[in-house]
Design a protein around this nucleic acid. Structure first.
Lengths: 131, 131
DNA sequence: ATAGTCGGTAACAAAAACATACCTGATTAT
DNA sequence: ATAATCAGGTATGTTTTTGTTACCGACTAT
């Protein structure tokens, strides 16, 4: 008995939490998994070439290319092109990139500390809720 | 003159960076944008109902439902159901959820501090690289 | 009677992420 | 000659994530 548009619809009514939106923006920008892993690698090794990153992370050429371009565009990574033969391109963190390393490694440490707890919580949840 | 499989293929050769993989796991679990925003909201307000969160974040019902379920499963959020009429469901952080709040707000603060810089970097990049 | 609240779910559409394979051009190593 | 290296670009698909819309039951307020 669907009489059309009589029932309530779910509009999005975001108005509050002004900061949340902006945090949201940044998180969607640098919050994907490859970006963070690239930043972690660069912060550990200082400077890395394209294929060094590729080998370290097990990322595909295409995703690495896209990820580095995004990070460079956002001012987190600096790219240096040496027109030698074969070509040599080096990537390193900018100042802003380095400053981002701190909150990121905070998350990383927490992750390492709590992985086991999370796994256990999952098991318990899956048992009680059961599927 | 393509003779088939003679040319090099792009294999993925991930072997190094043992920690990266595990950090990756947590980041893919709680690293999506809604999870972090839910955690931030709960840490600020203590306890929130479903629709309160929905209004605060401007998130769709479905995404909030999925996000909360994931967070509950991972042991970061606790759900209390009051079978009143209308029903009342309250969400709050667990102990582990609270411990996660610190690294999360570190990211949040960084995001707020650096949004403008990122925007400027983008502009500059778009101009020099041009489209 | 009709619309609204509450906390969701199911079905579907759109978008983003990711994978796979192949291409370049100059050069070196085999 | 042939293959390999370097740093990607491009084309095409698949898979995952995200968002939209409608719907539920049980009640209240108009």
């Amino acid at each position: 008995m669907n009489l059309g548009h009589t029932k309530g619809t779910d509009m999005l009514e975001s108005k509050e939490c002004p900061d949340c939106k902006r945090i949201n923006e940044v998180l969607t920008r640098v919050g994907d998994r490859w970006s963070l892993l690239v930043i972690i690698s660069l912060s550990e090794y200082g400077t890395l070439r394209f294929n060094e990153l590729k080998r370290n992370l097990g990322i595909s050429q295409r995703m690495l290319s896209l990820t580095l371009k995004k990070l460079e565009r956002d001012g987190l990574v600096h790219r240096t092109y040496h027109p030698t033969i074969p070509p040599k391109v080096e990537y390193k963190l900018t100042q802003m990139g380095k400053s981002f390393r701190e909150p990121v490694s905070a998350i990383g440490s927490w992750a390492l500390d709590n992985l086991i707890k999370i796994d256990k919580a999952r098991e318990k949840y899956d048992v009680t809720v059961g599927s």
